[in-house]
Design a protein around this nucleic acid. Structure first.
Ligand SMILES: [Mn+2]
Ligand SMILES: [Mn+2]
Ligand SMILES: [Zn+2]
Ligand SMILES: [Zn+2]
Lengths: 149, 149
DNA sequence: TTACTAATGAAAATGGTTATCATTATCATT
DNA sequence: AATGATAATGATAACCATTTTCATTAGTAA
């Protein structure tokens, strides 16, 4: 019997039932904004409090949350998917700086203003030129972090 | 007994022997610049002329070519890696526009000038701010193509 | 409380990629 | 051209993140 929740209504636009695992997964991601986690890491975190939880449900719920627009999914260097809670604030839009050695992921939001403006310009051009409906973008820089270089 | 090859010297900076499978893979990718192929697709293409070729060797050679800087590797929407021959010309630097419905990948190089300038600016800022050595970037826009929207 | 059925989770399947290892082929040397 | 050291190959099995299957459980409207 899950409880009330700030995001319950948004969730329910995509799915009918509000369940314990769904609440747990969303709460975990919300509790650590700007924390990047894999499905396995989420499973490990929740296993203590919910020993019965299944990895399958984690994957399904993450899909759901991505579709509902509450979290972001991106692919880390080693191929597995990572997830992070998506803040409501536009100003917190950010991109990633990834260390190819240790896998560390740094959020950065320098030049967001300029960047978003530039991105918008490119998107409009691409939409016109290729008759393409642009829905989003992935921008990532990679290299060696402080410790690894 | 593989033959001479334009890139043989560049190849041999990373590895000692010049072999038939290596030549075949490189030739295939060179013959279709701006064509994006998966390891499996490369395997299928080469199988006719080289029925003995192994998928393992394809993966190993692709790694090699990426390390040698002759090809690009990037991850497609469905998780598998794609490869493309990398042109020498700086001016042919491009990014990708991917259809999330049918998987079509469009190369675009609009705004490369501005884009590269902007990227350089960000890279310098990130290097300074996070003491990070930036080695490259991945920039991709996604959405729905002409046919799929 | 009941009934409907969406959601769950254990188990098996999938699929791309990597590791192992006996065999083969390249290439410097003879 | 023949030899030999060993890098490279390829068949096979392993790996591992993710998905599918299906019997069971639990959320919700009535
Ligand atoms: Mn982030
Ligand atoms: Mn391309
Ligand atoms: Zn690092
Ligand atoms: Zn399409």
């Amino acid at each position: 019997m899950p409880g009330p929740h700030k995001w319950r209504h948004r969730f329910q636009a995509h799915v009918t039932r509000w369940t314990v695992p769904r609440e747990a997964i969303l709460n975990l991601l919300m509790s650590r904004p700007s924390k990047h986690m894999s499905a396995k890491e989420i499973y490990a975190s929740l296993y203590r409090m919910y020993p019965g939880i299944g990895l399958t449900t984690i994957y399904r719920t993450l899909d759901l949350l991505v579709r509902a627009g509450l979290i972001n999914r991106f692919t880390s260097g080693d191929g597995q998917n990572m997830y992070e809670f998506k803040s409501e604030e536009k100003k917190e839009h950010h991109h990633h700086l990834t260390c190819i050695q240790c896998g560390k992921i740094i959020d950065y939001s320098d030049f967001v203003e300029e960047e978003l403006e530039f991105i918008k310009k490119i998107e409009e051009s691409l939409a016109r030129k290729h008759n393409f409906k642009v829905l989003g973008h992935n921008i990532e820089f990679y290299g060696l972090c402080d410790k690894c270089k």
